[in-house]
């Protein structure tokens, strides 16, 4: 009886395990859509966290530098046992890849014992089928046979990145402006506005302090009168400065619209402007930013196999 229960529980465990892990292209979670820095899909925890992080970094750089949008998936089991079909359906479903069709999918299913590198139509020239096969033969399959999934995937992704980075014709311009770079441009713009504001205020301050007679800095205000014209709502400012260098007096008159006496009325908006910009720019740090696939096209290029 004991043995029977043990057997039954083993059997149940096995079936649960198999049922839980079989993925369809629709049910495979696309972490990239939630966080654009994550390209590796590892729902069954087959890869170690360190390996996933290392590959994410490589692939994130690849997307930034070369405009290659990639998905690397490692699962226990897929439906229909066909890695190629799975990848093609995944590509069609999500439209992985940029407008230049430089999408890349790498899939490993450990129970089906199949793997596939699938290249978008724009990537077939950079990463021809033969090169995919060579990478698989040399960097992937030897480790797969040992069951070293981490090494197999990392070596493959590393080699693929090296090949793609070696292609000077692939540039990120093909994909248009990336969101991240757009954010940077915004920051630069805000910085430039602040700098300009500082420069202008410094220059006008300098002008105000310069003696018109000897051209030296350091005018000292001796006297200041404000005549208020309530009918036209204008304040006439009359100021007298004395130059400490040549001793001459300088009179300056200017009119200002009447305000409620703060005197800072004109100053506030330029300061608030850049602040608003900062706060908008800062929102990108609140949490992970979701990526989006741009409808890349896959024609069936790439290479796959079984081990």
């Amino acid at each position: 009886m004991k043995r029977f229960i043990l057997f039954l529980s083993c059997f149940l465990l096995l079936t649960i395990r198999i049922q839980a892990a079989s993925y369809t292209p629709e049910s495979l979670p696309m972490v990239y859509l939630q966080d654009q820095t994550r390209h590796v899909v590892n729902p069954d925890g087959i890869l170690s966290a360190g390996c996933v992080a290392a590959m994410d970094t490589l692939l994130w750089n690849l997307e930034r530098n070369k405009g290659v949008q990639s998905v690397v998936a490692v699962v226990e089991s897929i439906e229909n046992d066909d890695c190629y079909e799975f990848c093609m359906q995944l590509a069609r479903l999500h439209g992985i890849g940029s407008k230049a069709n430089t999408g890349l999918i790498i899939l490993l299913s450990t129970q089906n014992r199949c793997y596939q590198i699938l290249t978008g139509t724009g990537l077939e020239g950079t990463l021809p089928d033969a090169i995919c096969r060579r990478i698989e033969n040399q960097k992937m399959v030897p480790f797969l046979k040992q069951g070293d999934w981490d090494q197999a995937m990392y070596q493959t992704v590393y080699s693929v990145c090296k090949v793609i980075e070696g292609d000077p014709t692939l540039i990120n311009e093909l994909t248009g402006k990336k969101k991240q770079e757009g954010g940077n441009t915004g920051l630069y713009f805000v910085g430039a506005v602040i700098l300009l504001f500082i420069l202008i205020s410094w220059y006008s301050n300098r002008q105000r302090n310069t003696c018109p007679h000897c051209g030296k800095q350091g005018l000292v205000r001796m006297n200041s009168n404000i005549i208020t014209d309530r009918i036209h709502r204008i304040e006439h400012h009359q100021e007298t400065f004395r130059c400490p260098h040549c001793g001459q007096l300088t009179h300056r008159n200017h009119d200002e619209p009447m305000d409620n006496g703060t005197g800072f009325g004109g100053m506030v908006p330029p300061i608030m402007g850049p602040w608003g910009g900062f706060r908008r720019g800062g929102s990108s740090f609140d949490g992970p930013q979701g990526g989006s696939f741009e409808g890349g096209d896959f024609g069936g290029g790439g290479s796959g196999g079984e081990f």
Partner: peptide, 14 residues
Amino acid sequence: SELQAQLEGTENRI
């Protein structure tokens, strides 16, 4: 092996 990969890829493309 690489020729075979090209052939397989081409069949897939077809």
